[in-house]
């Protein structure tokens, strides 16, 4: 009799433990769900395409030398430029770092398959940029030719070798 009472008391205690554990598990599950621990995860990704304008040149023009076979001008068209942009109605402007000597001219012509070339543009005093290609739309234009022409008056004095830096800018 005493043993039976003891067994019943132990069973009751075990049942209480099981109930407590179950309640704890249920509460934990609710807590986890409340904290968002599910099998789905989300993130926000911000995207943006900035205005793009890139121009590059390939090669260096050969020296433009007017010598004994004086024809008045000499040209070079061995260099090229490429551009890419995602902006409409862009243009290329050109400028020179220092004016050309008196009696001489430096001219440039940029070809374009997608826009209007301004033809041969005199850069001799173009410290302020001048338009050389206009109306460039979105997209790329690759390996377009750059032509430089150096001209001098017939009565010009000898000019030792000099250099000028020509800057081509793709801009809106």
């Amino acid at each position: 009799m005493k043993n039976r009472k003891s067994n019943i008391k132990r069973t009751s205690a075990q049942t209480e433990k099981i109930v407590v554990i179950l309640i704890a598990l249920i509460l934990t599950s609710f807590n986890l769900m409340a904290q968002g621990y599910t099998n789905v995860a989300t993130q926000n990704v911000m995207i943006e395409v900035k205005p793009i304008a890139k121009i590059s040149v390939d090669g260096s023009p050969k020296p433009l030398i007017i010598s004994e076979n004086f024809s008045g001008s000499v040209s070079d068209d061995n260099t090229k430029y490429s551009l890419v942009t995602n902006v409409d109605n862009m243009k290329i402007v050109a400028s020179i770092d220092n004016p050309m000597p008196a009696g001489t001219k430096l001219m440039v012509k940029l070809s374009s398959s997608r826009a209007a070339s301004a033809g041969l543009v005199d850069l001799s005093n173009a410290l302020t940029p001048l338009d050389v290609v206009r109306g460039i739309g979105r997209g790329s234009d690759v390996d377009q030719s750059i032509s430089y022409t150096f001209a001098a008056n017939q009565d010009i004095d000898e000019i030792t070798q000099q250099s000028r830096t020509v800057t081509l800018t793709l801009t809106n």
């Binding site: 590059s56 040149v57 150096f150 250099s163 830096t165 793709l170």
Partner: peptide, 22 residues
């Protein structure tokens, strides 16, 4: 803010030389 630009530079060398048989 609205201006978009990119530049590339080239060096142009030139000279006028008086030589023979003028």
């Amino acid at each position: 803010v609205s201006q978009v630009k990119s530049s590339a530079m080239q060096t142009v060398t030139f000279a006028v030389i008086h030589t023979a048989n003028h």
